[in-house]
Amino acid sequence: NITNLCPFDEVFNATRFASVYAWNRKRISNCVADYSVLYNLAPFFTFKCYGVSPTKLNDLCFTNVYADSFVIRGDEVRQIAPGQTGNIADYNYKLPDDFTGCVIAWNSNKLDSKVSGNYNYLYRLFRKSNLKPFERDISTEIYQAGNKPCNGVAGFNCYFPLRSYSFRPTYGVGHQPYRVVVLSFELLHAPATVCGPKKST
């Protein structure tokens, strides 16, 4: 009989979030998941669920729940959905087409922007091929755009693959930082360890 609440607040209220290319994953298990708490945590810009209804979450049980978190800019949030393409979905964080879970995003301009520009958040701009779903690539190998090998040196047709967002508070919403948490629900042929409040007794 599990009584402890799932530590969603640790994920959502973390002081620092990860850069999207090096997104963070927390496995959540053996706890009571009260998803209604999430609705009250922040004024969400996005709370979209796929393959599951957000209002039914509190009635369900899962084997595992994974919470992935990272920062992107406002106009990239739409890429965090099944079947999307674009720089983020292709080279940084890719959801599977049959994704079961929820994408939660909110504006973090007050936390993640600086007047002089916050350069701490990076994204991958160049990659030889698209990522597979939930693949994480943290390599910093020089990207070869031409025929000549780069031998690890940046220059003509040889690019450092990561680029930094420079978040400034005066930017338009599309270029402001957004914190994203992706909850993916895993149903294996194994005992369910993460249940809503109704199912945990």
Score class of each variant (00 low, 15 high):
Asp90Ser: 03
Glu141Thr: 10
Pro7Gly: 12
Ser139Thr: 03
Asn1His: 02
Lys128Glu: 09
Leu5Gly: 13
Ser166Thr: 00
Ala145Leu: 07
Asn147Ser: 02
Arg163Tyr: 13
Lys114Thr: 15
Lys26His: 12
Gly174Lys: 10
Tyr35Pro: 10
Ile142Val: 13
Val194Ala: 05
Asp90Asn: 02
Tyr119Phe: 02
Gly196Leu: 12
Ala192Trp: 03
Asn40Tyr: 09
Thr3Pro: 04
Asn40Pro: 10
His189Ala: 03
Ser116Asn: 00
Lys132Ala: 03
Ala33Leu: 12
Asp98Gln: 12
Lys114Val: 15
Ser36Gly: 05
Ser200Gly: 05
Pro191His: 01
Asp97Gln: 10
Glu141Gly: 12
Asp98Gly: 13
Arg16Thr: 04
Leu188Phe: 01
Arg27His: 12
Val173Cys: 08
Ile138Asp: 11
Tyr121Leu: 14
Asn151Tyr: 04
Gly196Arg: 11
Thr46Cys: 13
Lys199Ala: 01
Ser166Met: 09
Tyr66Met: 06
Thr100Cys: 00
Thr46Phe: 11
Gln84Glu: 04
Ser116His: 14
Pro7Lys: 02
Ile142Cys: 15
Leu41Thr: 12
Val194Met: 11
Asn151Cys: 11
Lys114Ile: 15
Leu125Ile: 01
Asn24Gln: 13
Lys48Glu: 05
Arg163Gln: 00
Asn120His: 01
Arg16Cys: 05
Ile104Val: 09
Phe45Lys: 08
Asn109Asp: 13
Glu10Thr: 13
Ser166Cys: 07
Lys110Met: 14
Lys110Ser: 06
Tyr66Ser: 14
Asn151Asp: 01
Val52Ile: 01
Arg163Leu: 14
Arg16Tyr: 06
Asn58Glu: 09
Ala14Glu: 13
Ala42Asn: 03
Phe185Met: 03
Lys199His: 03
Lys148Cys: 07
Gly51Asn: 14
Ile2Trp: 09
Asn4Cys: 13
Asn58Gly: 09
Asp9Gly: 06
Tyr35Gly: 13
Asn87Tyr: 09
Arg27Leu: 04
Gly155Ala: 09
Ala14Asn: 04
Leu38Ile: 09
Ser29Asp: 07
Leu188His: 01
Asn58Lys: 05
Tyr39Glu: 01
Ala22Lys: 11
Pro7Asp: 07
Asp75Glu: 13
Tyr178Thr: 15
Val115Trp: 15
Asn4Ile: 12
His189Glu: 07
Thr193Lys: 05
Arg78Tyr: 07
Ala190Thr: 02
Val194Pro: 06
Lys199Pro: 09
Ser29Val: 09
Tyr159His: 01
Lys198Gln: 05
Thr193Arg: 09
Phe160Thr: 09
Val194Asp: 08
Ser36Lys: 12
Glu141Asp: 00
Glu141Val: 11
His175Trp: 13
Leu60Val: 05
Ala33Ile: 06
Ser19Pro: 14
Thr55Asn: 03
Asn120Ile: 13
Ser184Phe: 11
Lys110Ile: 14
His189Pro: 01
Arg16Gln: 10
Gly74Ala: 14
Lys26Thr: 09
His189Asn: 05
Arg78Asp: 10
Gly155Ser: 11
Thr201Ala: 00
Gln84Met: 10
Ala154Gly: 03
Ile2Met: 01
Pro7Met: 12
Leu41His: 01
Ala14Ser: 07
Pro54Thr: 13
Asn87Gln: 10
Asn130Cys: 08
Ser139Ala: 14
Thr55Val: 11
Ile138Lys: 13
Ala67Val: 10
Thr15Glu: 05
Arg27Met: 08
Ile138Val: 09
Ser184Met: 14
Thr201Cys: 05
Phe47Ser: 12
Thr85Gln: 03
Ala154Cys: 13
Ser129Pro: 08
Val32Met: 03
Asn87Lys: 10
Ala145Asn: 07
Val37Thr: 00
Asn1Pro: 05
Arg78His: 00
Ser116Met: 15
Tyr39Lys: 01
Gly155Arg: 14
Phe134Tyr: 03
Val37Met: 03
Leu5Trp: 05
Asp9Phe: 13
Tyr119Lys: 00
Asn1Val: 12
Arg78Asn: 01
Thr100Met: 11
Leu60Ser: 05
Gly196Phe: 11
Asp97Ser: 07
Leu111Asn: 14
Lys198Pro: 04
Lys148Thr: 06
Val32Cys: 12
Lys128His: 00
Arg27Thr: 00
Ala145Met: 11
Lys26Val: 10
Lys56Thr: 12
